[in-house]
Every structure is written in C-alpha cells, then in structure tokens.
C-alpha cells in the first residue's frame, strides 16, 4: 500500500477520504445544533451523552486525526504542486471563465477554517470536554459559573456577542466555499465521476454545502436574536 503515500493519486485519495469523513461530521454537528433551537434540554442531553465519556474522547481523537491528516496532506501537496509549477510566474495570468474561485484557493480557505476552529475550540471544547477531563465540574462563563455539560448555556452566552456571531458567519462562508469545491472534487478523485455525474456532483455538493451552512448560520443568528429580544436569558453572564 506504499502507493497511497508515494503516488500523486494516492495522496489525493487521502485528501478525498479524509475530506469525506469531515463532511459526515459536519452533518452530525449541524443536526445537533438544530436541536438546540427546538429544545435546550434535548441539546443538553446530547451534550451530557457525549461529555467526557471514553467514546466521545475517542471520537474527538479520531476526528482530530482526520483534521490533521487533511491539513498535513494539503500542506504537502500544495508545496509539491508549487514546486511542479516552477519558480517562474506568468507576467499575465487570467482565471479562465468556468474555473471556480474556490478551486484555486482551497488551501487559503483551509487555513481560514482552521483559524476559526481554534477560536471555536477555545470557547467550547476547552471549557467543556477538556474541563471535564481535567476533573472539574464547574467552569466560569462570563461572570457566572456553569456545568461543563450545560452546552445550551455556552451557546446562549457566546452567541449573545455580536463579534462572535460575525466571526462565525465569516467562518461559515469560508466553509461554504471550501465545500462547494471540495465535495465534487472528492468524488472526482475517487473516480466516481463521469461525463454526466461530474455536473451532478457539482449540484449535489452546492446544495449540500448551502443546506449545512444555512443550518449553522440559522442557529447562530437565532441565539443572537434571542439575546437581543430577551436579554434576561443571558443577563447572569454580564
């Protein structure tokens, strides 16, 4: 199986498969977020079920592994591709019509996404799973303390800040662009695409990216709007 690491198509397969895995995680995450809109209790049940249990920790480790693989191979392939391109740049270069902007900027988009992920982890994962792993059962949130299992409180607190909402929305836009190219590209790499399915995967990829990102954006905006309409729900944190 050394071809997987040594051949250009093998490395692309690694990008494709790890990308697919992360897409499946996004479906799970978006669905879980939508639950919070309908019932905070149900959302907290899911948070409690995951918590710092061994399977949640193992899942997080696997997920982190896939992010690392996807990122490391993106870096590796980008460097190799730059080398293949050579040092001489064209004096005039035009992006031909029909070439998506996202397709030529996947690495930059990836860096933006990872950057916001660090913000997200510092706000949620670090204060939830990590706190529990450290053996604490209370964590400071604004001027109050809550249980690290109380996911809904974290959502309400952070999404009551306008800058957090704006930052997350920028994140979703970057993710949308990344997915709008990434999904059909992943299908192309595993070879499931053909003359007809090439266009179909593009449409499916765009619809999927739009639906998932709208779900994330809806939850973010919903909780911000709630904090504005009824400030009492987050008053204890200020």
């Amino acid at each position: 199986m050394s071809w997987l690491l040594n051949s250009s198509i093998g490395r692309k397969l690694i990008m494709s498969v790890s990308g697919f895995f992360l897409v499946f995680f996004l479906i799970f995450h978006a669905t879980m977020n939508m639950v919070a809109v309908f019932s905070e209790d149900a959302y907290n049940t899911i948070c409690g079920l995951l918590g710092a249990n061994w399977y949640a920790v193992a899942g997080t480790a696997v997920l982190g592994g896939f992010v690392a693989i996807h990122f490391i191979y993106a870096l590796l392939l980008t460097l190799q591709n730059r080398k293949a391109r050579g040092n001489a740049n064209y004096a005039v270069s035009v992006r031909p019509s029909g070439v998506e902007w996202a397709s030529q900027n996947m690495f930059v988009l990836g860096i933006i996404i990872v950057g916001f992920m660090l913000l997200h982890f510092s706000q949620f994962w670090y204060k939830m799973m990590f706190t529990e792993l450290m053996g604490h059962h209370e964590v400071a949130l604004g001027t109050s303390t809550v249980s690290p299992k109380d996911g809904a409180e974290f959502v309400k607190f952070y999404f009551s800040h306008l800058w957090v909402v704006v930052a997350y929305l920028i994140w979703y836009v970057a993710l949308w662009f990344h997915l709008s190219h990434g999904i059909w590209s992943a299908f192309q790499t595993i070879g499931t695409s053909g003359k007809i399915w090439l266009s179909r995967w593009k449409v499916i990829g765009n619809i999927f990216a739009t639906v998932v990102m709208l779900a994330f954006a809806f939850v973010t905006i919903y909780f911000y709007a709630r904090s504005v309409i009824d400030p009492s729900t987050v008053a204890m944190y200020y």
């Binding site: 250009s8 293949a84 996947m106 790499t189 070879g191 053909g194 090439l198």
Partner: peptide
C-alpha cells in the same frame, strides 16, 4: 504536480478534452 480539479486545463485545452477523463484515470489507477 497533482490534480486539484480546478478545471483550468479543460477550459484552455484547444481540443476540449473533458476532465471526466481525469475521473476515469483515477478510477483505472485506483
């Protein structure tokens, strides 16, 4: 270099070779 499916090749190809061939190559190779 490795293909990142930008599709610039297909647009600029004087013979309009389709990138669906690249999917076939990936399939054949894998």
């Amino acid at each position: 270099g490795a293909c990142t499916n930008t599709g610039a090749c297909e647009v600029e190809c004087p013979k309009s070779i389709s990138i669906s061939n690249i999917a076939r190559l990936n399939r054949e190779f894998l």
